[in-house]
Computed example of a mutant assay.
Amino acid sequence: MISADGISPSDETSSALRRLRALPQHDLLTLAGDWFGELAPWRSAETLGAIAGLPAERVLASLLVFGEQVTETEAREDVPGPLIDLLLDTGVLTESAGKLTAEYCLVRGDGLALFAAWRAAGRDVGSYAPWIGTDSITLARLVGARRGVGSCLDLGCGTGVLGLAAARNGANVRSVDVNPECTAATTLNAHVNGVADRVTATAGDILSLSLDERFDLVVSNPPCLPLRRGALGWLAGEAGLDGLDFFWELLSRAPGLLTDDGEALLQAAAYGDERGPFFISRLEEEVRRLGVLGRLLVRPATPPRWPAFAPRDENQQLTGPLGDEVREYVARVGATHYYGFVLSLRPGDPGLAVGRFR
């Protein structure tokens, strides 16, 4: 399991750690397949050419981008010893019989270098967390476009990408996740990207978190698929058959966490039909009840989506009790489409505007 115990402030400014930030690597935005989670490392000629003449980068790419084993002797010949020691101390690398294996992949998202679970890069090994997907990168870009943010709360931080996008603009960030593997990854990723002095990651359940602070920006990309708590190795939570349990809870709490000029950005996904998501009428009622101004941005529709990595048959249909339950629900509500979305909430005249990503 990844750990933040092996890092110190001096590591952040070391030339060895900066090498990770510059490492040529695949970009998640180039990897999206037809199914969420079907991502694979980018092995383009440009990437291979960039690392071909650089021994240290070639070794690091073999380990962290392509998931290949490298002998420790070979690695230490080309890669600075302090960097190898750091990656071993934090659990990113493990050693067995003289060979090094990367337990996490290194991916790039919107200019950030992020340690994430290998399953985010399409390899069926290791943990399911910290997860990152193209939806995370989209939301990170929206976060990065918010300037003048002094304080940010990232709920369900995962890799930390959302909070890091705010910290890169100068915000002080509090990142929270129920999974200690995610809070450790967030801390390590903050060091890798040079913003560790502005990011504090703490373990906690986002649905029972008690906070007295108010923030200029609250961001969250919570679970939005019907996985059971702890299922498939995920320490996240069950989002209900419609995938919105976390969303509704966060929506009710977000206004009380904002400063007078603050904003919340909540991302999730919902079932619908060709006209749009089913939940919009309820959302409009909730926004008015909470007394806030909401703007909903809806992504292009896909077919109804199943949980990533859940067991499926040869036709890509869910199998087992969860599959039966989800299929019965989708048929009962008449869902034919599945919409990702981002909701912006601000203090202001209550109401909801609905738009679409272009």
Rank of each mutant, 00 (worst) to 15 (best):
A113K: 07
I132W: 04
A102E: 06
W118T: 12
G163R: 08
A145R: 12
G156F: 02
R147S: 10
R146P: 00
L153K: 07
R108Y: 09
A129C: 07
R119H: 07
G160R: 11
D124A: 13
L106F: 08
C157R: 07
R147V: 02
V143E: 01
D135C: 11
S136W: 09
V149R: 13
R119N: 05
S151V: 04
R146G: 00
L112G: 02
A140R: 03
K99H: 14
R119G: 01
A97F: 13
L100H: 01
C157G: 08
S151N: 03
V149Y: 07
C105Q: 12
L142N: 00
F115I: 05
D110S: 13
C157Y: 00
R147A: 11
R147M: 04
L106A: 12
R141W: 02
A97L: 12
G109M: 14
R123M: 13
G111L: 05
T138I: 11
A129N: 15
L112F: 12
E103R: 14
L162I: 02
R141P: 01
D124Q: 12
A113V: 12
S127H: 14
L162C: 03
Y104M: 11
C152L: 08
V125C: 10
A121R: 10
V149A: 09
F115R: 04
T101E: 11
E103A: 15
P130Y: 07
G126C: 03
V125Q: 08
T134Y: 07
Y104R: 13
F115P: 01
G98N: 13
D135K: 11
G150R: 12
G98K: 15
L100A: 04
G158A: 14
L114E: 08
F115G: 00
K99R: 15
G163C: 14
R108F: 00
D135M: 10
G156S: 07
T138A: 12
A97R: 15
G109L: 04
C105F: 12
G133N: 10
Y128M: 14
G150A: 15
L139D: 06
G111Y: 07
V161K: 08
D110C: 00
R123G: 03
D124L: 10
V125S: 06
G156H: 09
G122E: 02
W118Q: 01
A120H: 05
R123H: 03
G163H: 01
A140V: 03
G111K: 02
Y128T: 12
A129T: 13
Y128K: 10
F115L: 15
T138M: 12
V161N: 01
C152D: 01
